[in-house]
Amino acid sequence: MIEMENKASNIQIWQYITAILLIFLLGYHLLQRVPWLFNVSTFDQTLTSAFVYNQYKEAGWALLLLAWVALFHGLNGVRGMLFELHQGKTYNTIINVLFWLVFIVFAAIAALTIVKLPAY
């Protein structure tokens, strides 16, 4: 019982911790797409494979962390909304299982991008 009661806060605290991390990580990620910071002139030129390959090499770990944190924050938010949509024990369990499933699958895909990145 006590365990359950703590949970509501814990989930929410993680939501805020990921939010704080996201401000920095996403800020960095958005700046990666501003062309003038990299001496190119258009948005499209920041998306060429050579350019992106370099960014993966330089700060792949930051992008991976961003993907994980954003996934957790987003899926957790959706989970909260789904709990609001409908109530019930079985329903809650299904949602929780789905949450972890989707999280793990996509987190693994994101990790593969960095680990198995083919050479340019």
Binding site: L71, A110, L112, T113
Partner: peptide, 21 residues
């Protein structure tokens, strides 16, 4: 907006993983 972003994020992870898959 949260909904839009999570939909985009899932697609974005698949898209950026394209050199691998």
């Amino acid at each position: 907006t949260g909904f839009i972003i999570i939909a985009f994020l899932l697609a974005h992870i698949l898209e950026t993983d394209s050199p691998v898959w």
